[in-house]
Amino acid sequence: MKKLPFLLMALQDLEATEEDVKREDYRSIFPVPHQAIEREKERLRDEIRKMGGERVLERYERLKQQYGKSIVLTVGGICFHCFAVLPTSLEASQQEGLLECPNCGIFLYQTDEEEA
C-alpha cells in the first residue's frame, strides 16, 4: 500500500466533503458537525506526520493555496493538472512513493493501471 499518497488523497477528498457539508441541501440530510470533520482531518494529518511527512503537509497546503488542489492522478502518462507529458522514469522524490510533476510540482498518484 502506497500509504502516504493514500493519506493525502483521503485528506483532499475529506476537504471536498467539507465543502458539501457547508451546503444547506446537504445538511438537511446529514447534519455533520464541523468539529467532526476538523477532528478527522487532524487525525489524517497526524498519521502523515508520524510517517515523517511534516514537510509534505506544508507542501500540500502550499499547493492547495496555489492550485486549489494538491494531488492528482496521472492519466496515460500525463499529469492531470497541467497536462504535461511525464518522463517514463518518473522517480519518487519523497518517501513512500510520493511523486511530483516536474512541470507544475503538484503531487501525483500513479495508479496500478498506469504502472501496468
Binding site: F6, L14, D112
Partner: peptide, 17 residues
C-alpha cells in the same frame, strides 16, 4: 488500488458521522 483509496475515504466519511 483505487478501490482501496475509495474505501479509506468512505471510512473517513463514516467517522465524521
Amino acid at each position: 488500488d483505487k478501490k482501496e483509496i475509495l474505501l479509506v475515504t468512505l471510512k473517513k466519511r463514516e467517522a465524521i458521522g
